[in-house]
């Protein structure tokens, strides 16, 4: 564990708490892509079920339980409790365009051709693109509530912090994880446009609005 990874994980944790806060206080999931949230459940379940056979640390296990539990809870909130505020007509990204290529990639690129390792690779690839339905929705509506942008920023910062973490681990431990690093760089890249608007507008007190 190093500082970059710890701060990254905390940022990930914060992003989920911000999202839950947004839904609970506004009693609405307006502006949140159900598809992205469903993809995160798939990501966490595919990757973190190793909880049952691979113990790393209490920290690691507790985080895994939290991520699986909170992502399922968010789906429940969107699908049942605040269902009327969820508008599927603007959440139109075709997720099969993500699921199928990720499944194929995970069969080709994995560290061991066995179900658990293929699932791990699949979750890494899927996580890297799971935000696309959400970004697509943002692009379509052209604006977002400030709190939704804080959620996305925290999520993007989490990914960005994993990059210095890998650099640090390469020099201190000599380990390199090409699958995670490649997918992680792609994933962080997807946030660049968003970050630009977030840092130049939202943090200056302006509304998050995309140029027409």
């Amino acid at each position: 564990m190093n500082l970059f990874r710890l701060l990254g994980d905390l940022s990930h944790l914060a992003s989920i708490l911000v999202l839950l806060h947004k839904i609970q206080t506004s009693r609405s999931c307006r502006g949140i892509s159900f598809k992205t949230q469903a993809l995160y459940v798939a990501v966490f379940v595919a990757r973190y079920l190793d909880l049952f056979w691979r113990y790393i640390s209490l920290y690691n296990s507790a985080m895994k339980v939290f991520f699986i539990g909170s992502s399922c809870y968010i789906l429940y909130l969107m699908k049942y409790r605040y269902r009327p505020t969820n508008d599927p007509s603007i959440d139109t990204f075709r997720i099969e365009y993500l699921l199928v290529p990720c499944a194929i990639l995970s069969l080709i690129f994995n560290y061991n051709f066995m179900p658990t390792e293929i699932l791990w690779s699949f979750s890494i690839f899927l996580e890297s693109v799971a935000i696309l339905p959400q970004l697509f929705m943002l692009q379509r509506t052209g604006e977002a509530e400030a709190i939704t942008t804080h959620y996305l920023a925290a999520l993007g910062i989490y990914r960005a912090l994993y990059i210095p973490n890998w650099i640090y681990r390469y020099f201190t431990e000599g380990v390199i994880d090409p699958i995670a690093v490649t997918a992680g760089i792609v994933q962080t890249g997807l946030y660049l446009d968003f970050f630009y608007v977030y840092f130049t507008k939202v943090l200056q007190g302006q509304k998050f609005e995309l140029p027409a």
Binding site: D9, D50, I56, N60, Y111, N165, D177, A180
Partner: peptide, 10 residues
Amino acid sequence: APPVQGHDEL
């Protein structure tokens, strides 16, 4: 060979 050594990252 790289890290099947645990996937210790989240």
